[in-house]
Every structure is written in structure tokens, then in C-alpha cells.
Simulated scan of single mutants.
Amino acid sequence: MKQRWKSYGLWIAVAALVGMVLQDFGVMIPPERYDAYVDILLTIAVLGGIINNPGGNEQRN
């Protein structure tokens, strides 16, 4: 389970979900700003060591 929290796909999906929820509550974020917010969030996660890819692009069994 811990390895799943280090997945880029998971964090991108979470960012997309947050964006959808904000739109449902009436908060309008321009798409270019939303992209910038997602980039910032992922950069902070990478720098903080939350996301990493120790195995490169190798498939895991």
C-alpha cells in the first residue's frame, strides 16, 4: 500500500479530483492556472520525497 502513495498516476488523479470538486462547488479556476497548480503540487511532492521512482521504468512483478 505504501508504494501506491508514491505513484505519479495517483497524485495526478487526486489533483484532477480536487479540480472537479472545486468546480462542483462553483469555484472557477482558469485551465492554465489549474495546470500551474498541478505542476506546483507535483513538484513539491517530488522534492519532499513523497513521489519517487526508484526502479525506473522497469515492470514490477
Rank of each mutant, 00 (worst) to 15 (best):
F25N: 03
M28G: 04
A15C: 12
P31W: 11
G48M: 02
R60Q: 15
E58M: 01
N53L: 13
P30I: 01
A36Q: 15
D24C: 06
Q3S: 14
F25L: 05
L42R: 00
N53I: 09
L42W: 01
Q23K: 06
D24P: 00
G26W: 12
M1F: 15
M1H: 09
L17H: 09
V46M: 04
Y34D: 11
A16L: 14
P31V: 01
D35F: 15
G19H: 02
N57I: 10
N61E: 11
I51Q: 01
Q3H: 11
Y8L: 11
L17G: 08
R60Y: 09
I40W: 14
L41K: 02
V21L: 12
W5H: 11
L10A: 06
L41I: 07
A13C: 07
R4C: 02
N61K: 12
V46Y: 02
G26T: 01
R4V: 09
A16K: 04
E58D: 15
V21Q: 02
A15H: 03
P54C: 00
S7H: 03
I40K: 07
A13F: 09
I40E: 15
M1G: 12
I44Q: 06
V27E: 13
Y37G: 00
Y37S: 00
L47S: 07
V14I: 15
I40G: 00
L22Y: 08
R33T: 14
S7G: 01
Q3V: 13
N61H: 10
L42V: 10
Q59Y: 04
N61A: 08
M1N: 05
K2R: 12
N57C: 07
D24I: 15
P30Q: 10
G9N: 05
S7F: 05
G19W: 05
P30F: 09
D35M: 10
Q3K: 11
Q59R: 07
M1S: 14
L22R: 13
F25K: 08
